[in-house]
């Protein structure tokens, strides 16, 4: 795989992307077939360290299948991929240890307290007790959550839960965090606070790979890919995509690409 050479690009906001050359995710002609059905059809892209990479597509386009392969949960049929430096086919456990994951559907254990959830996930990722204790205090303070340390997660408002879930997913400082529709159903203020947490994480060098159905959130990404029928049909900065498709918003870019999809749904 050829390594992209990045030249400083004065047009784009992300200074982080431009000064880092490392690819945290490298995908080369990745394919996943289920019987005769090709769910993911030769996708190729790179994600740089510290980048916010938006992974968009219609329902059924193959996003979830692609993401499962990148997280080491599903074996590719063909092609290669590396995440955090590890092969997604042969070094699955190392991939899993180097990433964080959060989705709207599953994030934290409702019947555990706030501190117990942190302790559980940090323990699974092999962090030591002393480090967990120290970082837990720091995290709760930063989120203004100290008073909720002993609260059961099911008693937290949804917005708090989502913010806590994200913080837990990056607690072990993974190289890359995968966020699967992290803001679904959250109120608009919390949704924006959530994105500010994402910005903070990238400023610490964590790479963010995120799916969303909110097209305004696509604008917050450094680069966006749009999958249609298993293939990556477009990949660029939101600004360039809008110029390319002569559209005012990412919403109309998405409509132009996805309305011709022949597949639908998952």
């Amino acid at each position: 795989m050829t390594k992209n050479i990045i030249t400083p690009d004065s047009n784009r906001q992300s200074s982080i992307v431009n000064c880092q050359l490392d690819s945290v995710i490298q995908v080369d002609n990745l394919v996943k077939r289920f019987g005769h059905f090709t769910a993911v059809d030769h996708i190729t892209f790179d994600v740089k360290q510290g980048e916010i990479f938006g992974f968009l597509g219609a329902n059924g386009a193959g996003k979830t299948t692609a993401m499962r392969m990148l997280c080491g949960l599903s074996k590719p049929t063909e092609g290669h991929g590396r995440v955090a430096g590890f092969d997604i086919d042969r070094e699955v456990e190392k991939v899993k240890a180097s990433i964080g994951y959060m989705s709207q559907k599953f994030s934290l254990y409702n019947d555990l307290k706030v501190w117990e959830n942190i302790r559980l996930f940090a323990g699974i990722y092999g962090m030591r007790d002393k480090e967990i204790a120290q970082k837990t205090d720091a995290l709760l303070q930063r989120l203004n959550f100290t008073s909720e340390r002993n609260t059961l997660v099911k008693e937290l408002p949804l917005g708090w839960k989502q913010k806590l879930a994200f913080s837990v997913s990056i607690f072990h400082q993974p190289k890359v965090v995968f966020l699967d529709e992290p803001t679904g159903g959250v109120d608009p203020v919390t949704r924006r606070q959530f994105w500010e947490l994402i910005y903070e994480a990238t400023s610490e060098g964590i790479t963010v790979f995120v799916t969303t159905h909110y097209m305004d959130e696509a604008e917050y990404c450094n680069r966006v890919s749009i999958m249609v029928d298993g293939q990556v049909k477009a990949l660029d900065t939101p600004g360039n995509l809008k110029r390319q498709f002569e559209a005012d918003t990412m919403d109309s870019v998405f409509h132009r690409l996805a309305r011709n999809a022949t597949r639908s749904d998952n």
Partner: peptide
């Protein structure tokens, strides 16, 4: 809910 913009 959870439906892509085109299907919505």
């Amino acid at each position: 809910t959870g439906v892509d913009p085109v299907s919505r």
